[in-house]
Design a protein around this nucleic acid. Structure first.
Length: 415
RNA sequence: CGGAGCGUAGUUCAGAUGGUUUAGAACGUGCGCUUUGGGAGCGCAAGGUCGUGGGUUCAAGUCCCACCGCUCCGACCA
């Protein structure tokens, strides 16, 4: 991508926001606020989001889940059936001009269950796991911190159906492992799993995935001993100070919730009269599980964790580009030709690169922008670098001079 | 939903006890020239329903009322 053609570039000055991710993503040209809690995703932001989504897709497919797409517009009757039309106070409701009321879906139990009912007849149809990645709508009283808490936000939601509780628990554990892998692949290593209080409608189990970061909004109590994984939300921890599992002193930190999983029991299968005939010939309600990851929130959380005073530091896996080429002295034709040669070489290798081809911009300004955008590798080509290419990691201080061959080898190797 | 703050140019803000009449500055933006290794310089230019509506007044960006919007704290978060 040529920088000069990029829509939504970094801004030297931008509106100031309290939340770091809100500030950096806005200034860096990743997102643009439409209204409180509602955002446009610009090309840079959309690429990052897509990369996050694709990591999630891979891991969901790995555990045998199949991707579907369900509507955002839900007839009110579905929500009346589960008694949530009036009890969910964040529900957006819209009226059709021809009559009829609809919910803008904040979650999809109300459509996945009737959908599954059309196909699940026998125990042979189970287990079943379906997921989707869509925008969700919640009429939050107070949206905050940019994309960390919006009224419209991206979410991956997975629903599973099982013939018995044991089968659900089995799958539930697989999802936990898949989630940890997803977060690790997105560059988030300090993710704690907490036993949460669960939904108001279920006495079953429920777990939350929290990233430790000072800008988090929930207080987390956890044990940082390697062998112990104890963690709880402060609201349900009753101010414990010693780990109940290993007697280690507990730590307390702020965290952002980026995922949660629930055992739904038969609440929804009963509400929609979804039954299957089991091996014993009897009709039963499938046990359901639901599993969410906030994709847009995850993007914000990554920035909260990975940044410095110069800008964002994207993990390679979700960075909009793998490298940025800063071309200097571009009015000198030999330099310009060389810059484009390197750019094309990388393109041919399948290395997505952003080429700062702006002629009138001073070197300093280009360096500031490159740091702000936060791609992992920066290359500089100028009169000064002659037949070499200057290369530097986003968090490194020192630059290295390499030849084009070395560069090609480098990227071929790690590819 | 309770509380606080703020709405004047893209951004940050000045103008605030009503009255220099044509609402300013800096930065940013566009164009031209000059410049090119950590946000360069000069020149020119564009850019505003002063959040919206009502009221008071000879006169409102400025005072009063209502509404809307944004940010932050709290509660809430199926």
């Amino acid at each position: 991508m040529l920088y000069s053609r990029l829509f939504g570039r970094p801004k030297k000055e931008a509106k100031k926001f309290e939340s770091i991710s809100h500030q950096l993503l806005t200034q860096g040209g990743f997102i643009d606020q439409v209204s409180s809690g509602i955002f446009n995703y610009l090309p840079l932001g959309k690429i990052v989001l897509t990369k996050i989504e694709n990591i999630i897709r891979e891991e969901m497919n790995n555990i045998g889940a199949q991707e579907v797409l369900m509507p955002a517009l839900h007839p009110s009757s579905l929500w009346e059936k589960t008694d949530r039309w009036t009890s969910v106070d964040v529900l957006f409701k819209v009226k059709s001009q021809w009559g009829g009321e609809y919910a803008l879906a904040p979650t999809h139990e109300e459509t996945i269950t009737p959908l599954a009912k059309k196909f699940i007849k026998s125990y042979r149809d189970l287990p079943l796991a379906l997921y989707q990645i869509t925008l969700k709508y919640r009429d939050e009283k107070r949206p905050k911190s940019g994309i960390l808490r919006g009224r419209e936000f991206g979410m991956k939601d997975l629903y599973s159906f099982h013939h018995d509780k044991k089968d659900l628990e089995n799958f539930y554990q697989k999802v936990i492992q898949a989630y940890l892998k997803i977060f690790r692949r997105c560059g988030l290593t300090s993710v704690k799993i907490t036993e949460a209080s669960g939904g108001s409608f279920t006495k079953k189990f429920s777990h939350e995935f929290n990233v430790i970061t000072p800008s988090g909004e929930v207080d987390l109590i956890y044990c940082d001993k390697e062998s112990c994984s104890f963690a709880q939300n402060e609201e349900i921890s009753q101010s414990k100070t010693i780990c109940p599992r290993c007697q280690n002193p507990l730590k307390k930190e702020k965290a952002i919730e980026i995922g949660n999983i629930f055992d739904l029991g038969t609440r929804f299968s009963e509400a929609f009269d979804l039954k299957f005939v089991d091996q014993d010939g009897k009709e039963k309600f499938p046990i359901m599980g639901c599993y969410g990851i906030g994709t847009t929130r995850l993007m914000g959380a990554i920035v909260e964790v990975h940044h410095d005073d110069k800008g964002i530091i994207w993990p390679e896996t979700v960075s909009p580009y793998r490298a940025i080429i800063v071309g200097l002295d571009l009015k000198e034709k030999p330099v310009r030709d060389r810059v484009f040669l390197v750019y094309e070489k990388l393109q041919n290798l399948g290395v997505e690169a952003l080429l700062d081809d702006r002629e009138e911009i001073s070197p300093g300004e280009k360096f500031y922008d490159a740091d702000l955008i936060g791609v992992p590798v920066r290359m500089v080509i100028s009169q000064k670098t002659k037949d070499k290419i200057e290369i530097k990691g986003r968090t490194e201080e020192k630059v290295k001079l390499v030849s084009l061959d070395q560069l090609v080898n480098h990227f071929s190797f790690i590819k």
